[in-house]
Amino acid sequence: MSPYPFHYHRAHTLAEAVTLLAQLGGEGQLLAGGQSLIPLMKLRLARPGALVDLNFVPGLSAIDEHSGEIRMGAMARHAALEDSELVARVPILHDCAAGIADSQVRNMGTIGGSVAEADPSGDWVAVLLTLGAQVRCTGPQGERIMPVSDFVTDAYTTMLGPAEIVQEIRVKLPPAKSGGAFIAFKRCASVYASASAAVQLTLGDGDICRDIHIALGCVGLTAVVPIAAQDALRGKPVSAKSIENAADAAMAAAEPQSDMRGSADYKRVLVRAVVKRAIDIAARRARGERVEAGHEYVARV
């Protein structure tokens, strides 16, 4: 349970981090909250020659409102996001931040690290997809910004070039009559979900669903966007029937694998359930209701 030997570099500015990474070539790897990287190193499944620590770069963990956007610094911890009043204005973000693992992990883990890690079971990517979030990156060639849907390309794979760093995540504040919810089914606190669903929808007159974004976590190589499920609701009244139809379509779109978190068949069943609940709560929130949502656990109601 100890890593292979490695060198440690502490960056004091983003530019220094980029330079260090460029100098180290393939050897270097960024260290953010370390909640994915350090366990992998201790299990000797990851063997970076050198770490470039982002924890001492000032300003990287800011959470601000700017031009109708929430801008979350890459080093913003899950716990800081959980506690942020600004973030709470977009309830689906709060649902996500508050339910990641346990408080030890939330106190260290970062949103930037989660997005860069692109773990198919991670919570953030699915949630950010439904909000059309943008990922701002900095590298030797300068800055670029791209939607999270383009950023994550495969399991544990992103558009990040060598020596490129996630600097910030930007989310547009949703319009009026828009609501979202994230529901993840987990066995216990300190593990990844078995299946999760993020839903952000906007209501029009007469409870018609004007727009909807759904993303499923843990049931594919990346978060799955079930197009047919979105179509089952978009432009239609939000009703028990339309929600059922969307949930069925989401279930069909899921491509889960059997593992200790559940058999593939069972995970599909879970997808159906979490999608239904997430749509229901998202719609109620869009109507202005205050409803709790987030992670569900075995045994406890």
């Binding site: 346990d102 066995r187 216990c188 606190a189 300190s190 593990v191 990844y192 200790m260 992670h295 656990y297 075995v298 045994a299 406890r300 109601v301």
Partner: peptide
């Protein structure tokens, strides 16, 4: 404690074995 047909223990970490946490307790 789950073993696969070759006798590999599939629940040798807490992520797989999932001991109970307070979030599960009624």
């Amino acid at each position: 404690c789950v073993y696969d047909p070759e006798g590999n223990m599939l629940t040798a970490t807490f992520s797989d074995y999932t001991p109970i946490t307070v979030m599960n307790m009624p």
